[in-house]
Measured scan of single mutants.
Amino acid sequence: MDPFVVLVLCLSCLLLLSIWRQSSGRGKLPPGPTPLPVIGNILQIDIKDVSKSLTNLSKIYGPVFTLYFGLERMVVLHGYEVVKEALIDLGEEFSGRGHFPLAERANRGFGIVFSNGKRWKEIRRFSLMTLRNFGMGKRSIEDRVQEEARCLVEELRKTKASPCDPTFILGCAPCNVICSIIFQKRFDYKDQQFLNLMEKLNENIRIVSTPWIQICNNFPTIIDYFPGTHNKLLKNLAFMESDILEKVKEHQESMDINNPRDFIDCFLIKMEKEKQNQQSEFTIENLVITAADLLGAGTETTSTTLRYALLLLLKHPEVTAKVQEEIERVIGRNRSPCMQDRGHMPYTDAVVHEVQRYIDLIPTSLPHAVTCDVKFRNYLIPKGTTILTSLTSVLHDNKEFPNPEMFDPRHFLDEGGNFKKSNYFMPFSAGKRICVGEGLARMELFLFLTFILQNFNLKSLIDPKDLDTTPVVNGFASVPPFYQLCFIPV
C-alpha cells in the first residue's frame, strides 16, 4: 500500500478516535471549553503556568470542569470545598494515580508514587510505618536530621561569610537525610558517588519541569519514536535504579534480621516474612523503585522550600529577627534545636507554614484518578478519569488567608500570638494520596531553619526591599529566582 495512503488512514483513525473520546459521556461530565481534535484544549493552557490557566477557566466554568490534554480527559478541581469533598470525603474513590506514560515506562507500575490498587496500598502502608518507626538502627529519624543539620551548619561556616548561592548546600542536606534513612549512610558533600546522585536528581527535576515532558505524557507515541530530553530522564532513572540495586545486594549479604539498620533492611525482612506468599507485593523490584521514589520526592521539594525560605527571610528581616528572638528565648545557644521545641515556638512554626503556603511549591499536585465511576456534584466521572487538583486555589484562598499574595506569618497566628491551624494548609496535597514523607519534610524544615538561624545572621547583597521573591514557574514547580547571601556567624 502507498505510504501516503497509510499515513492518511492513520491520521484519520487518530482523528476519529479523538472525536469519539471527547464526545463520549460529555453530557455527564462537568462543563469545559470545547476541545480541538487530537490536541484537545492545549492551546487554551499556558504550559509554563498551568495553575494560572486553571484559575482563569474556573471563573468561566465553575469549581469543577473538564479539560482535554491531547486525548487525555481530565476533570479539574478548583477551590477548597471541591478539593476537600473529593480528596477527603470521597478519598477512596479519588485515590488513584493519574496516567503518566513516562513514569509507567520507567517504574513499570512498581513503587509508591505511580503505583495503584493493592500494590500501592500495601507499599504505602509499609513505608509510612517504617518512616514513623523511630527505632531503626537504634537511631531515631530526628537524630538523623539533627546530625545532618549540624553538618549543614559546618558547611555554611566554610563560606566564611562571603557571598554564596545556597542551592547546592541546601540540596545536599535533605538528600543526605533520605540516604541515611534508606542506606544507613550519609555522605560527605564532596563524595563523588553522592555528587553523581545529586546531579541525576537535579537533572531529572529540570527535565520533568519542561513543556516537552508534558507533551510526551499527552502524546506517548513520542516516547519511542522521537529524540528528546525524555530519553535522558529514562537513562538517569535507570542509572539510579541500578545503583540502588547494588546497595540492596550489599544489604542482603550483611543484614541482621533482628537489628534492621535502615529502610532497605526493613523491606528485606518483610520480604523474608512473605516469601511463601506468591501474591506478595514485597519484591526486589518494588524495593528498588520505592527507594528511588523516596529519593526523588524527598530531596528537591525540601531543598527548594529551604532555598525559598531563606530568600523570604532576607526580604523580611523583621520576621527573621522575631524567629531568632524566639530561638534565643526557648533554645538558647548551648544546645541543639529539637522537635519538642516546636510546641513552644508558635512564631517560628507560623513562619515555616507561611513559607510553604506562600511559595505554593507544587501548584497542581500530582494528578489523581478516580478508581470507579463516581457521581460528584451531579456529574458522572468515569472510572480512570484523571483528576487535576489546584492546590493554589486552596493555599491562596483570600477568605482563609487575607492578602494571600503577601508573605505574612500572621496567617497562622491567632490574636494572642498562638499558632493557628488551618484546614486550607495543603502543600502536601490531601486525602489518601497525601505525601508519604510529610512528617519528615516538616521535621527537616523546622530543624534546618532553626539550626541555621541559631548559628548565623543572614545578610543580603542588596537592599532587602529590592529582592525579587516572585516565583519562577516552570510548569511543574514554583522555584525561587537566583540569589546570593552571606551567612554571618553569630
Rank of each mutant, 00 (worst) to 15 (best):
Gln276Phe: 10
Phe282Trp: 13
Thr159His: 11
Leu7Met: 13
Gly137Thr: 15
Thr55Ile: 08
Arg261Thr: 06
Glu400Pro: 04
Lys118Cys: 10
Arg206Gln: 14
Pro3Leu: 14
His411Arg: 10
His344Ala: 12
Gly296Ile: 15
Glu354Tyr: 01
Leu71Asp: 12
Phe482Asn: 14
Thr159Cys: 10
Phe401Ser: 00
Glu104Leu: 10
Leu485Gly: 05
Glu250Leu: 09
Asp414Arg: 06
Gly62Ile: 00
His230Trp: 11
Pro317Arg: 07
Cys175Ala: 13
Tyr424Glu: 03
Gly70Glu: 00
Ile60Tyr: 07
Asp408Trp: 04
Ile181Phe: 14
Glu122Val: 10
Leu71Thr: 14
Leu388Trp: 10
Phe100His: 12
Gly135Leu: 14
Glu93Val: 13
Phe448Val: 06
His230Gly: 06
Asp373Cys: 04
Leu295Ser: 02
Leu310Arg: 01
Asn107Glu: 05
Ile284Gly: 05
Ile387Pro: 00
His251Ala: 05
Lys48Gly: 10
Glu272Trp: 09
Pro33Glu: 00
Tyr308Arg: 04
Phe412Gln: 00
Phe239Cys: 12
Ala103Arg: 11
Arg333Val: 10
Lys160Leu: 10
Ser23Gly: 13
Pro163Asp: 07
Arg73Val: 06
Tyr68Phe: 15
Asn378Met: 04
Thr299Leu: 01
Asn259Ser: 11
Gln276His: 15
Cys13Thr: 15
Ile269Trp: 06
Leu306Cys: 04
His411Pro: 00
Ile181Gln: 05
Leu312Asp: 00
Arg26Ala: 13
Ile222Val: 14
Ile462Phe: 11
Arg124Ala: 02
Ala321Tyr: 15
Leu237Val: 11
Glu318Phe: 09
Trp120Asp: 02
Ser478Asp: 06
Ile244Asp: 01
Glu250Gln: 14
Lys160Ala: 12
Phe282Ser: 02
Phe183Asp: 03
Gln192Val: 12
Asp143Thr: 10
Asn423Glu: 15
Leu485Ile: 10
Leu54Ser: 03
Lys138Glu: 14
Tyr379Ala: 04
Leu311Lys: 04
Val64Glu: 01
Phe187Arg: 08
Asn277Ala: 12
Asn133Ala: 08
Glu281Trp: 11
Pro211Arg: 11
Leu295Ala: 04
Pro402Trp: 05
Leu245His: 09
Phe114Ser: 10
Tyr68Trp: 14
Leu77Asn: 00
Ser254Phe: 08
Lys59Arg: 13
Leu195Asn: 10
Ile123Tyr: 01
Arg442Val: 10
Phe168Pro: 10
Leu90Ala: 14
Leu361Arg: 03
Lys235Gly: 11
Ser303Cys: 07
Arg442Leu: 08
Gln192Gly: 11
Ile289Leu: 12
Glu147Tyr: 09
Leu29Thr: 07
Cys338Gly: 10
Leu128Lys: 15
Glu274Met: 10
Val6Gly: 13
Arg261Phe: 01
Leu170Gly: 02
Ser242Ile: 13
Ile141Met: 09
Arg97Ile: 02
Arg97Thr: 03
Thr305Val: 08
Leu453Ala: 09
Cys372Met: 13
Ser429Trp: 01
Cys175Val: 06
Tyr358Val: 12
Thr371Glu: 09
Asp397Val: 01
Ser180Cys: 05
Gln193Pro: 12
Phe226Asn: 03
Lys275Gly: 10
Leu366Ile: 15
Val6Cys: 14
Ala441Gly: 08
Ile169Tyr: 11
Lys420Pro: 01
Leu11Met: 11
Val351Thr: 11
Ala477His: 15
Thr389Leu: 14
Pro402Ala: 14
Pro363Val: 02
Cys175Ser: 08
Leu310Gln: 00
Glu438Arg: 09
Asn41Ala: 00
Asn455Arg: 12
Thr130Phe: 14
Val6Ile: 13
Glu250Pro: 03
Asn116Met: 06
Asp341Lys: 02
Arg329Val: 11
Glu318Asp: 14
Glu325Trp: 10
Glu300Thr: 13
Glu318Ser: 11
Asn107Pro: 04
Cys172Val: 08
Tyr379Asp: 01
Phe134Asn: 14
Arg26Tyr: 12
Lys432Leu: 09
Gly40Pro: 02
Thr66Ile: 05
Ile181Asp: 00
Glu241Cys: 15
His344Phe: 14
Gly384Asn: 08
Leu156Thr: 02
Ser393Cys: 01
Leu395Cys: 04
Met443Val: 09
Leu233Gly: 05
Ala430Phe: 06
Lys200His: 11
Val153Met: 10
Thr371Leu: 09
Leu310Met: 11
Pro471Ala: 13
Asp188Thr: 10
Pro227Ala: 08
Tyr80Thr: 04
Pro30Arg: 01
Val76Glu: 00
Leu29Arg: 06
Phe94Trp: 02
Leu71Ser: 15
Gly111Asn: 03
Val352Arg: 01
Ile269Asp: 07
Arg132Ile: 09
Leu128Gln: 15
Asp414Glu: 08
Leu54Cys: 08
Ile381Gly: 00
Leu9Lys: 03
Cys338Pro: 01
Met129Leu: 12
Phe168Val: 13
Thr450Gln: 03
Leu361Ala: 12
Pro363Ser: 03
Glu142Gln: 09
Ser24Leu: 12
Asp143Cys: 11
Val490Arg: 15
Val374Phe: 02
Gln146His: 12
Pro31Thr: 05
Asn41Asp: 03
Phe376Cys: 03
Tyr68Arg: 12
Lys383Met: 08
Gly91Ser: 13
Glu328Pro: 01
Cys164Ala: 09
Leu366Gln: 03
Glu415Met: 09
Phe110Gly: 11
Val8Asp: 00
Arg97Pro: 03
Ile327Thr: 04
Ser365Phe: 04
Glu85Pro: 06
Glu272Leu: 12
Cys486Thr: 14
Glu253Thr: 14
Phe267Asp: 01
Leu197Phe: 10
Ile327Trp: 02
Ser23Tyr: 12
Asp165Pro: 02
Ala106His: 11
Gly98Cys: 14
Val5Met: 15
Leu287Arg: 00
Met74Pro: 00
Thr392Lys: 08
Ile381Gln: 03
Lys52Thr: 12
Arg442Asn: 15
Asp191Ala: 08
Leu391Pro: 01
Val76Gln: 00
Asn202Ser: 15
Glu415Gln: 12
Asp262Gln: 01
Glu300Arg: 14
Val208His: 11
Arg144Lys: 07
Asp341Cys: 05
Glu81Gly: 10
Trp212Leu: 06
Lys432Arg: 15
Asn423Arg: 09
Gly439Lys: 15
Pro33Lys: 01
Asp46Met: 05
Thr348Cys: 06
Phe4Lys: 06
Arg139Ile: 11
Val436Leu: 11
Gly298Gln: 01
Pro409Ala: 06
Thr389Gly: 02
Asn398Lys: 06
Leu77Ile: 10
Ser180Thr: 10
Asp188Pro: 09
Val319Gly: 01
Tyr379Thr: 04
Glu400Gly: 08
Pro37Phe: 04
Cys175Glu: 01
Lys275Glu: 10
Ile45His: 05
Pro37Ser: 04
Ala161Trp: 07
Glu93Cys: 13
Val355Gly: 00
Phe100Tyr: 15
Gly91Tyr: 05
Ser24Cys: 15
Asn258Tyr: 13
Leu268Asp: 00
Asn116Glu: 10
Lys273Gln: 15
Phe168Ser: 14
Asp49Leu: 03
Asn455Lys: 15
